[in-house]
Design a protein around this nucleic acid. Structure first.
Lengths: 143, 143
DNA sequence: TCCTTATTCTAACACGGTTGTTATAATCTC
DNA sequence: GAGATTATAACAACCGTGTTAGAATAAGGA
């Protein structure tokens, strides 16, 4: 388990390296994401930090999430309705329920190397491959 | 190449089989999707049918797209901003540009069977797997 | 041709996210 | 440290996508 300090330090170095500023909002949002450790919407994240730092604005949350995505510490999971954000950036994939929209992680080796080669043949620069399995989650398949 | 009539007939049988009505809007939207034969937004589709049948409303377009998805003749491609709809339902995957949002098809064999088995272990009923490769398209990588 | 009711249209609305603009505060320079 | 510089934050107003409610229309069956 990483310490809170270590989580801060990682972000601080990444920001310094890009000449960007270290702000309480960025540190706090980063900590909250690691603590929650699950898929969250921008709104949920804003609510999660509201008790520690009131009045963190929606534009700040959105901008910071995109910043973290650029830093490579966060993944956007596009979804009809609202996007989710996934603090796990290691190799894993997603089950998306077509009825309720729930997103669940799934571990499975998927060889995407052929797809990466095909992408490059299209003169596209791939940075990651994400398998999305749609279907019905355990709750929705019953109803 | 399928004839226009054949395209209509397929939809008509699918609708009849479900006890649903055959309407000019449904036939026209279906034809327009096959003619365009590329990823389109709901708005683009509405514009494409506007000359042949004016006043086709947004709710009708959205409802019909979801109907076709249920019929299995169309795929939704979730994307930040607006979803796209893909008239190809055979096995293929997508390149999504993280800068401009463009979506491109890519042919590549991807073995998702391990992921399907993993999904079932989660008591999830998978119906399809979709690989999304994010990165920069040929236009955006230059700038 | 009439009846039933699914489907459509119109209008207003909700949500997710973004864009100015001004105010604040993190960092730099001395 | 103190002051200057400039990125970043907050607020408010806005935009686009998609949805809902309800009345009007028309498809399919008797």
């Amino acid at each position: 388990m990483q310490t809170k300090t270590h989580i801060d330090d990682q972000l601080i170095s990444a920001l310094r390296a890009r000449g960007q500023r270290v702000t309480p909002q960025r540190l706090l949002l980063n900590r909250a994401l690691r603590e929650l450790d699950r898929h969250v919407s921008a709104e949920e994240l804003q609510a999660a930090v509201a008790d520690r730092l009131p009045n963190v604005s929606a534009p700040t949350v959105y901008a910071t999430l995109e910043l973290f995505e650029e830093l490579g510490t966060l993944r956007r999971v596009p979804r009809p309705g609202a996007d989710l954000w996934d603090p796990r950036v290691d190799d894993h994939h997603h089950l998306v329920c077509r009825s309720c929209g729930a997103v669940e992680d799934v571990e499975a080796g998927v060889d995407a190397s052929a797809a990466f080669r095909a992408a490059r043949r299209h003169r596209f620069s791939p940075d990651r491959a994400q398998l999305t399995i749609s279907g019905l989650c355990r709750n929705c398949r019953r109803s």
